[in-house]
């Protein structure tokens, strides 16, 4: 029963640790914005902590640079279970504009198992709060996943040149 109580308390008290793995500081500023009284993340029990040992959620910003890979792995190990990893910003989601840069490994999910992705460059504070609220189960996902297809050059009704010939 006690264990159940602990599991129930988990989503109501998420302590986040914010780490920058090669970010331009844009996402960092938006993350700090979420914690200001205007957005008031504390009403969901979200609190910024200074030590990964206290954290439940890792907010990872930025494309993973080669130098930061061992530190990021150690950081993940320093967070006690259960833990959630949230990738914030286009760079953390998939490398962003640096995806083919020589010193970038890629998005955060090349190194850590990422639970939630919040894209945007930088994502608005509302988007970050929405993402975290979705992680907490407070709101439903509002868009469906889109499967992107290679679009044809012209509508199919118009016969292509090769067929017309």
């Amino acid at each position: 029963m006690f264990k159940k109580l602990c599991e129930k308390a988990f989503p109501k008290s998420l302590w986040v640790y914010h780490c920058n793995v090669g970010d331009c500081n844009g996402c960092d500023i938006e993350v700090i914005d979420v914690l200001t009284p205007y957005y008031d993340a504390e009403r969901f029990g979200i609190k910024l902590v200074a030590s990964p040992r206290h954290a439940d959620v890792l907010l990872v910003c930025g494309p993973v640079t080669r130098q930061v890979v061992p530190a990021l792995k150690r950081l993940y190990d320093a967070v006690p279970d259960p833990k959630i990893v949230i990738a914030i910003g286009s760079c953390a989601v998939g490398g962003g504009i640096w995806f083919d840069s020589y010193n970038i490994v890629g998005g955060v999910d090349t190194i850590l198992p990422v639970d939630y992705y919040i894209p945007g460059c930088p994502p608005r504070p509302e988007a970050i709060l929405y993402g975290v609220a979705m992680a907490l189960g407070l709101t439903e996902k509002q868009i469906e996943s889109v499967h992107l297809k290679q679009l044809l050059d012209r509508p199919e009704s118009v016969p292509m040149e090769s067929e017309a010939r």
Binding site: C6, E7, F10, K12, S13, R43, G45, P80, D81, P82
Partner: peptide, 26 residues
């Protein structure tokens, strides 16, 4: 701070969550 703030029993949520977490031997 003129904001809404956490629920009154938030410290209990924090305590029980921490009690249920892994205990790393640092």
């Amino acid at each position: 701070h003129s904001r809404q703030g956490p629920p009154i029993i938030q410290p209990f949520y924090d305590l029980f969550k921490l009690l249920g977490k892994e205990d790393l031997e640092s």
